[in-house]
């Protein structure tokens, strides 16, 4: 399986992905990897309905994503993977999926988190996961859409004194 793009975004598949990323990156599948969404029928249905025309979209659990990645029958897939948070991104990479850069769109603010950029909020678990990803030599590319200028999340985290 040739994973073309890995993106962290709390809202997973939405306007920015359908109108921009799905068009600029050549993929034949969108895989939404989230244990939470896989068990939430309403959200799952809404997300699948937001898929761009012509690209099949599935919601799978992290475990299944890793299993499929190592199964040669799925070699024909060239997917874009969307995850909700850094922790899931780390689980996927730990499971053996090769990627050299992770795109981060938006991570919603909540009581446990602090804002590090205009759209990205992190908590302790997120920071740990980002640190792990950074240590693997994976680039943390902050862009909402492909045309935005890329910012390095590691720099923002450092400036905030979080790492």
């Amino acid at each position: 399986m040739d994973v073309r793009f890995l993106r962290i975004d709390s809202r997973l598949l939405h306007g920015q992905v359908t109108t921009n990323w799905a068009k600029v990156i050549k993929v034949n599948r969108i895989l939404i990897v989230s244990d939470r969404v896989a068990g939430d029928r309403t959200r799952k249905t809404l997300i699948i309905q937001a898929a761009p025309p012509g690209i099949k979209t599935n919601v799978v659990t992290v475990e299944k994503m890793i299993r499929m990645y190592h199964d040669p029958r799925f070699d024909i897939l060239k997917p874009m993977i969307l995850v909700e948070d850094a922790v899931d991104a780390r689980r996927i990479v730990e499971g053996g999926i090769t990627i050299d850069s992770v795109n981060i769109g938006a991570i919603s603010f909540d009581a446990t988190r602090v804002m590090v950029t205009d759209a990205i909020a992190v908590n302790a678990a997120d920071v740990a996961a980002f640190k792990w990803l950074h240590d693997q030599g994976i680039k943390l590319d902050v862009r909402k859409v492909s045309n935005d200028s890329s910012k390095n999340l590691w720099k923002s985290l450092s400036e905030k004194g979080l790492v």
């Binding site: 939405h14 306007g15 809404l46 309905q49 205009d118 859409v145 935005d148």
Partner: peptide, 29 residues
């Protein structure tokens, strides 16, 4: 418009408003 799309459009619009307020609007060439 399907109700499902209405929800997605509302979410997108809310995002656009918030980006406007935080001066972090998306770019396009």
């Amino acid at each position: 418009m399907s109700n499902a799309f209405k929800i997605s459009l509302i979410m997108h619009m809310a995002g656009a408003l918030e980006r406007n307020l935080t001066r972090s609007e998306m770019s396009a060439d």
